[in-house]
Simulated scan of single mutants.
Amino acid sequence: MNAWILLVIAGLFEVVWAGAMKASDGFSNTGPSIVTGVAAFISFWLLALAMKDLPLGTAYVVWVGIGAIGAALLGIAMFGDEITPLRLAGIALVAAGIAALKFA
């Protein structure tokens, strides 16, 4: 499979484990705690596969960026995080950084 596709899927699994970790309430809820561990394993595994073909810095920053943007949006959508212009600008800046690395 294409390294970039693996990397995007890895980033999406990062969003899953971050959201599940929040829902686990400090790992006191079993279901979300298990989802956190499984999703984190899949995310790291796919990242490792993508790194076979992509430069370390590019792969890692894109993976973290997808996770950061996704977690920020998930926090807004599901956990009541505040929507502010500065928060949205920060998300846009992370997205711009990911695009820059993709096309660098």
Rank of each mutant, 00 (worst) to 15 (best):
P32S: 07
L73N: 10
L56T: 13
A92H: 05
G80N: 09
M78S: 11
T30R: 09
A104P: 00
V38N: 07
T30W: 10
A96H: 00
A89W: 01
A95C: 05
A100H: 01
L7Q: 07
I91F: 12
I91S: 01
F27D: 09
K52D: 14
A39D: 07
T30C: 02
G70K: 09
A10D: 03
D25E: 15
A104C: 03
G97R: 01
M51R: 06
E82P: 12
I76T: 11
L47N: 08
R87Q: 00
T36N: 07
G97F: 05
D81R: 06
G65D: 01
E14D: 14
G19L: 11
I69D: 00
P55D: 15
I42W: 05
F41T: 11
M51G: 08
I42G: 03
A77N: 03
S28N: 10
M21D: 08
A95N: 02
T58C: 00
F103E: 00
A95H: 02
F79M: 09
A104Y: 04
V61W: 08
G57V: 04
S28K: 13
F103Q: 02
A3E: 14
L56W: 03
F103P: 00
P32Q: 08
L49Q: 14
I34G: 06
V62C: 09
A89L: 15
G70I: 12
M78Q: 10
I98D: 00
M78Y: 12
V15L: 01
V94F: 10
N29F: 06
L93S: 11
A71T: 15
W17C: 04
V38D: 08
I5T: 15
V16T: 11
I34Y: 07
K102C: 03
M1W: 11
L54V: 06
L54R: 06
G75W: 03
I76N: 04
P55S: 12
M78H: 06
A50N: 09
F27E: 05
F41S: 01
G75A: 04
D81K: 10
S28L: 02
T84G: 14
I69T: 06
N2M: 14
A96W: 01
A10M: 06
A59G: 10
G67M: 06
A89G: 10
A95G: 12
A10P: 01
L101H: 00
G57P: 10
V94W: 05
W63I: 10
V16I: 15
F103R: 05
A68H: 10
L88N: 07
D81V: 13
I76F: 09
M21G: 08
L56K: 02
L47P: 04
L73M: 15
I83C: 06
V35A: 14
F27M: 13
Y60H: 12
G67H: 05
